[in-house]
Nucleic acid binder design. Sequence first.
DNA 1: ATAACATATGAATTCTATTTCATATGAAGT
DNA 2: ACTTCATATGAAATAGAATTCATATGTTAT
Lengths: 103, 103
Amino acid sequence: MKSGSLNLFFETLSTRLRLDIINYLRSGPKTVGEMCKELKEDQSKVSHSLRRLRNCHFITVENKGKERIYSLNKNTMIPLLKLVDNHMKKYCCTFCGDKKCLR
Amino acid sequence: MKSGSLNLFFETLSTRLRLDIINYLRSGPKTVGEMCKELKEDQSKVSHSLRRLRNCHFITVENKGKERIYSLNKNTMIPLLKLVDNHMKKYCCTFCGDKKCLR
DNA sequence: ATAACATATGAATTCTATTTCATATGAAGT
DNA sequence: ACTTCATATGAAATAGAATTCATATGTTAT
């Protein structure tokens, strides 16, 4: 196991916005516009985030006219999220999301 | 799924040192001193990293005399690493660890 | 009680990633 | 060809995390 690219894997999933995008894509393919609207986020921010998610193959794109349609790589992401969810269920009480609380 | 603490999960696994520690602990429980030596890292750095890993319950500690013995939470970590490894095997060619290459 | 050792902690500094903003690209319609 | 709409990109500004360093804590031995 070389940690050289492993950390990129995890780093890419380490921001609220990118996780929100992943989560939103669970309900099916979406355009960039739809994501911006749903997540109330700037188009540029979303686009930058999408690039990083794409780079790690967490999502895929398809062009449709002038829109781009993003889909989740369910193969990887669904089991991953399930695994993490299990861990959280077991430990979440002390696993505090509050930025203040011991990092 | 609230991304509030999910991102802490991933963020904690997003640095080389913390991943190296996880990886090293796969070969069994270790003291802080052993980790510092093996990974050629400053004791303070390692300790700070361990705190974060502990906070997420990726590792556990036990006191033994003046030493502290850290163990991997294999329950979560082994399946997680396996899953990630599969993903990497499938896509690693374009999944470039080089910091320069499109983040 | 003191010294020696192992580890942890806090705060300042340094480093790196995210945000912002202005602009570029590319497709579709007129 | 020009305009509009959707999305992408680059670079400067900003925010946030890692490193460093000095020091604290806790255990064991003398």
